[in-house]
Structures are given as structure tokens and as C-alpha cells.
């Protein structure tokens, strides 16, 4: 009998859970700041009603689904159809790098860490929204590594919105 054994790879549970948690926070942040930030509101105003977007880690997830409904953004569990815009991380390590956030979206895209399926113009608008969301969530020293230029947002506004999100918005989602 052959001594060669087959190998069934296990899962990277810790990184999967961390990615899931960050996705939940990001989804909540998008939902909250799409109601409180004028620029983000303007960006999503151009998206059609019912527009869906997903962040997904190949092949097993986790996955974040976002829907535009009544002019607002909200996270949803499942939808029947294929999302109109998909950002698929090629593996859990790539997702972990970008979501934790050790690497910015432009660098991640340059390094082929994810692929985008869908309308590129909407992907560009989503990236601009993401830059503003990250600017609210993280301090400058982190943002400098994540984006080419930190969005110009009034300091007091940025601090107060950050405080609001981490105390109320993250719980209520509004």
C-alpha cells in the first residue's frame, strides 16, 4: 500500500473571524455615514435604487452585502440575485491585510489582492466613500498608509462623527 497520504487543508478561523468582525463594522459605518456625510450622500445618490454591493472573501467568505434602499445604504443578510458590484478578495490572507487595515485599497488593487466584478465607475465611487469612512474611523497616522490623500474633513466634524459612531452609530446603525 502506498505511504503517500492525502492532505485536507483546515481553515484559518482566527483571521476569518477578524475579517467578519471588521466587515460588520465597515457595513455599519457605511450605513451610518451615508446618512451623516454630505459627500457620501452625493456619491450614493448616483446609484440606482435597489443597487447591491458585496465584499466577499473567496472561496468560503465571510461576506458583507450592502443594499441601497429608499435612497439610503443598509447592510443585508442575503439577496436573491447576484450583487451588481462584487469585490472579491482572492484569499483570507489578502482580506486580512486590507481589512485590519495593514494595506490600503490602491496598494491592494496594485498587488492583485482582490478582483472587482461590475461597473467600474461605481467601484470608483465606492472607493471614494470608503476613503471618507476610513478617515472617520481611523486617526491620520493609520490613514496615511491606507490612502493616497486623506479627505479634507473639518477636524471638529471628524472627531464628533467618530465619537458618535463608536458610541451610538455602531449600535443603532443610524
Amino acid at each position: 500500500m502506498s505511504s503517500i497520504k492525502s492532505y485536507k487543508p483546515g481553515r484559518k478561523w482566527f483571521k476569518t473571524i477578524v475579517c467578519k468582525v471588521v466587515m460588520v463594522i465597515l457595513g455599519r459605518a457605511f450605513q451610518v455615514f451615508s446618512r451623516h456625510d454630505h459627500e457620501i450622500k452625493n456619491e450614493i445618490a448616483a446609484w440606482p435604487e435597489g443597487f447591491t454591493l458585496e465584499l466577499n472573501v473567496l472561496p468560503f467568505g465571510p461576506r458583507l452585502l450592502i443594499l441601497k434602499e429608499d435612497g439610503k445604504i443598509r447592510t443585508v443578510g442575503e439577496i436573491d440575485e447576484k450583487p451588481e458590484l462584487s469585490v472579491n478578495f482572492k484569499n483570507i490572507e489578502s482580506a486580512f491585510l486590507i481589512l485590519t487595515p495593514l494595506m490600503g485599497v490602491p496598494r491592494g488593487f496594485a498587488e492583485h489582492r482582490f478582483i472587482v466584478i461590475g461597473d467600474v465607475a461605481k467601484a470608483m465611487a465606492f472607493t471614494r466613500c470608503l476613503n471618507r469612512i476610513l478617515a472617520y474611523l481611523y486617526p491620520d497616522f493609520l490613514c496615511r498608509n491606507l490612502m493616497r490623500r486623506i479627505p479634507e474633513i473639518n477636524f471638529m466634524k471628524r472627531m464628533s462623527k467618530r465619537l458618535y459612531f463608536y458610541t451610538i452609530g455602531i449600535v443603532t446603525g443610524s
Partner: peptide, 13 residues
């Protein structure tokens, strides 16, 4: 232009 995918790889925002 700001919605064109090529901008993603531009060194400056």
C-alpha cells in the same frame, strides 16, 4: 475621468 478605473493605479489621488 474620476470614475475611470485607470485612476485607481495613479500615484496621486
Amino acid at each position: 475621468a474620476i470614475n475611470d478605473g485607470a485612476l485607481m493605479m495613479n500615484p496621486e489621488e
